[in-house]
């Protein structure tokens, strides 16, 4: 298991769901050591992890950036209405913040993991959105 898979497991465990209800939205920021050139693939990997937080299928992504530091953000919408604002930033001092909002509460994850993320091989709509400057549907 890698860190993102573990995180998805922790956030979607039954004990969390019982407290926060149905996850509906998320804000997540991943400042981690990676090469700025991998940012799109890393963000796609985070978006893939977010699918598991909601147990939902992504519908559309709109990506912003990169800013000169290599930071990238995406607003990802899911087929059943959930939304997530996800960000990645290359950084030597890791810092992960996830706020998962349920319809009856929130769960917050804060960490400074010793983790070097691996870029997704299929950055798909996020890469295409960055290229076109428009929201792109998942196929």
């Amino acid at each position: 298991m890698n860190y993102l898979e573990d995180l998805a497991g922790w956030l979607s465990q039954e004990a969390v769901r019982r407290r926060i209800g149905r996850p509906v939205a998320a804000r997540a920021s991943f400042a981690l050591p990676f090469d700025a050139g991998d940012a799109t693939g890393i963000l796609a990997a985070v978006a893939a992890s977010a699918q598991k937080w909601f147990d939902a299928v992504p519908r559309r992504a709109y990506a912003l950036g990169p800013v000169p530091s290599g930071a990238l953000h995406a607003l990802v919408e899911f087929a059943t209405g959930e939304t997530a604002l996800l960000g990645v930033e290359p950084c030597e001092q890791p810092a992960v913040h996830v706020l998962l909002i349920g319809n009856h509460g929130t769960v917050e994850w804060t960490d400074a993991p010793d983790f070097r993320p691996v870029a997704s091989l299929s950055p798909g709509p996020i890469a295409e959105s960055l290229r076109t400057g428009a929201p792109v549907d998942y196929r």
């Binding site: 939205a25 709109y62 953000h73 607003l75 604002l85 960000g87």
Partner: peptide, 20 residues
């Protein structure tokens, strides 16, 4: 949620809501 671009290429995002 909002995703914005500003003059000179600054980017910004916003989450806003009433959540219980």
């Amino acid at each position: 949620m909002m995703a914005l671009t500003l003059e000179t290429g600054i980017t910004a995002t916003i989450t806003a809501g009433r959540i219980g």
